[in-house]
């Protein structure tokens, strides 16, 4: 059976989605990147191999996310695409009439505006990653609440506390302060959800025409508290589609299928067993001192990148 693999390597999670020729999801994985994208992908491939029974052939691989170049080079991707295109592709498969996509991941948050199934505009958070999953994660850790329970706790609150949403440093000190003066955890968590939504709408979605249907995806869309806060602020129904947390990887699998050629460049499931090392060095050939990254599979140079001039890549 011919199958297509999409991998989304993000700052917090690494996701793999395997689809068949009818675009049916055969399997999907949501794994923590834990700061080691290569290890995460190796783990993912290993798990996928164990779970998939029967004779399958990978006919195409696509990578996206902030680690897309690195992993693309290592697994032998046929197509490497940015997250916006991948997320839009995935969402449109489930909700073809979607006009707005809200995507909040670990470090990036995006708004994608679609009209008639075509991306016409988008925006991403600028310099600051305030209000993304990584911050929620950090707060969950601080409060000793599993991040998965953030949503249910927030939804319970009737009087969310006011928390500053402009900057995570301020938000955190605000949260601590509110806790110290006696606000309940659920009100503080709900307040945090509202402040993240406020921050998103003011900074990322600033000036954009948010028209329904509004689709909400990315890791943070698992959080029902944030979903509720969005619905309250926008006064619109928010759709969280199936496979919401792995939508980028799903979109990539679709793109890999659409783009498939006779022979995939996929290096096979064996790479999960191989030793992959990445190292970097500074090229001193000119005063730019580019940081060159070198990936070695079992000691052999597989790929190099990072140079401005193309000498090494």
């Amino acid at each position: 059976m011919k199958t297509y693999l999409g991998i989304d390597i993000g700052s917090i999670s690494t996701n793999l989605v395997l689809i068949d020729e009818k675009n049916q999801v055969l399997d999907h994985l949501y794994l923590r990147t834990d700061g080691n994208p290569i290890k995460a992908v190796q783990n993912g491939l290993k798990k996928l191999k164990e779970k998939i029974l029967g004779d399958i052939k990978i006919a195409g691989v696509g990578t996206t996310g902030s680690g897309r170049q690195l992993i693309g080079a290592i697994v032998g991707a046929d197509i490497v695409k940015n997250e916006i295109t991948a997320h839009a592709k995935g969402a449109l498969h489930f909700i073809p009439e979607a006009r707005t996509i809200i995507e909040i991941g670990g470090q990036d948050s995006k708004i994608i505006i679609l009209r008639d199934g075509i991306v016409v505009d988008f925006a991403m958070n600028a310099i600051c990653a305030a209000g993304c999953g990584a911050f929620l994660d950090a707060q969950a850790f601080r409060l000793k609440i599993p991040v998965e329970e953030f949503g249910p706790i927030a939804v319970e609150s009737e009087k969310p506390t006011n928390i500053s949403g402009r900057c995570t440093v301020f938000a955190e000190s605000d949260m601590i302060h509110k806790q110290q003066v006696g606000h309940s955890i659920k009100d503080v968590v709900a307040g945090l959800c509202q402040s993240l939504v406020r921050n998103y709408l003011n900074n990322v979605a600033k000036g954009k025409d948010i028209q329904p249907p509004v689709v909400f995806q990315g890791g943070v869309s698992e959080n029902t508290g944030i979903k509720k806060a969005f619905e309250k602020s926008l006064g619109k129904e928010i759709i969280v589609p199936q496979y919401n947390t792995v939508m980028g990887a799903f979109g990539m699998a679709l793109l890999a299928k659409q783009n498939s050629k006779d022979e995939s460049q996929f290096k096979g499931f064996e790479i999960s067993e191989q030793e992959i090392n990445c190292s970097s060095f500074e090229c001193r050939a000119c005063p730019n001192y580019c940081e060159i990254i070198e990936a070695r599979i079992d000691g052999k140079v597989a790929s190099r990148w990072g140079d401005r001039c193309g000498k090494w890549s």
Partner: peptide, 14 residues
């Protein structure tokens, strides 16, 4: 360059 490339690529796609 990653952030810049992501935005440019997505823009070209639009």
């Amino acid at each position: 360059e990653a952030g810049l490339i992501t935005r440019l690529e997505a823009f070209v796609d639009t």
